[in-house]
C-alpha cells in the first residue's frame, strides 16, 4: 500500500494518446511444393517422413530444413502407423453445452520411425488422467481423405504390453 502511494506522489498521471499495431493484411507464405509428396501419401493413407542424408534424422511432419546440418532433406521414407506419446499436458476448458470445466489432454506424439514430435488429437473425450509418457497409439484415418494433415483424424490408444510386464515385476518384488 505504501509503495502505491509513493508511485502516485512521484509520477503524476498525464493525458493518454491511443495507438494500435494493426497488421490485418499480413500474409504468411508457405511453400507447399516441398511437402507435396507427404500430402499425396496422406491422401492414399500412407505416412512418409523426410530423412536428412547427412545426419539420418527423420522428421514427421516433414521439416524443410535440417537444423543440424543446414541442408534440405530430400529422402522420403515410409513410416509405420503406430506412434507413442512423447510428452503431454492438460488444459482445463468448458466446451459449449457443457456445464463443467473438464481437463483435456494436449499430447506431443512421436511417430514410430521419426525423430520429431507433433501435437495431434486423441479420441474425443479421452480421459486426461489415463495418458502417460510412452503410451502406444495408432492412427485413425479420416473417412474422406483430402490430402492434408486433417486426414489423420486422431490417434487411437492401443493395447500396451508393458503395463502387464510392469505389474508382474511389481508383484515379484
Amino acid at each position: 500500500m505504501a509503495r502505491l502511494e509513493y508511485i502516485k506522489k512521484q509520477y503524476p498521471r498525464t493525458r493518454r494518446v491511443h495507438g494500435n499495431w494493426y497488421l490485418s493484411s499480413y500474409q504468411y507464405k508457405f511453400n507447399v511444393k516441398r511437402i507435396n509428396q507427404c500430402l499425396e501419401h496422406l491422401r492414399m493413407g500412407e505416412l512418409v517422413g523426410l530423412k536428412c542424408r547427412s545426419c539420418n534424422t527423420v522428421s514427421f511432419p516433414p521439416r524443410l530444413i535440417c537444423p543440424k546440418c543446414l541442408k534440405m532433406p530430400d529422402q522420403w521414407i515410409h513410416l509405420r502407423e503406430t506412434a507413442t506419446v512423447a510428452t503431454f499436458s492438460g488444459t482445463y476448458a468448458k466446451e459449449s453445452g457443457d456445464t463443467e470445466i473438464r481437463p483435456y489432454p494436449v499430447v506431443a506424439i512421436r511417430q514410430d520411425g521419426a525423430d520429431t514430435t507433433w501435437l495431434a488429437n486423441l479420441p474425443e473425450g479421452f480421459d486426461f488422467f489415463k495418458v502417460y509418457v510412452g503410451m502406444p497409439l495408432k492412427i485413425k484415418w479420416a473417412e474422406d481423405k483430402k490430402g492434408d494433415f486433417s486426414d489423420i483424424e486422431y490417434y487411437e490408444p492401443i493395447e500396451d504390453p508393458s503395463i502387464e510386464m510392469n505389474k508382474k515385476e511389481e508383484a515379484e518384488n
Binding site: 494500435n20 494493426y22 497488421l23 490485418s24 500474409q27 508457405f30 511453400n31 507447399v32
Partner: peptide, 9 residues
C-alpha cells in the same frame, strides 16, 4: 505457395 492471413493487433 500457400498463404495464411495473420491478424496482428
Amino acid at each position: 505457395i500457400l498463404t495464411t492471413k495473420g491478424a496482428v493487433r
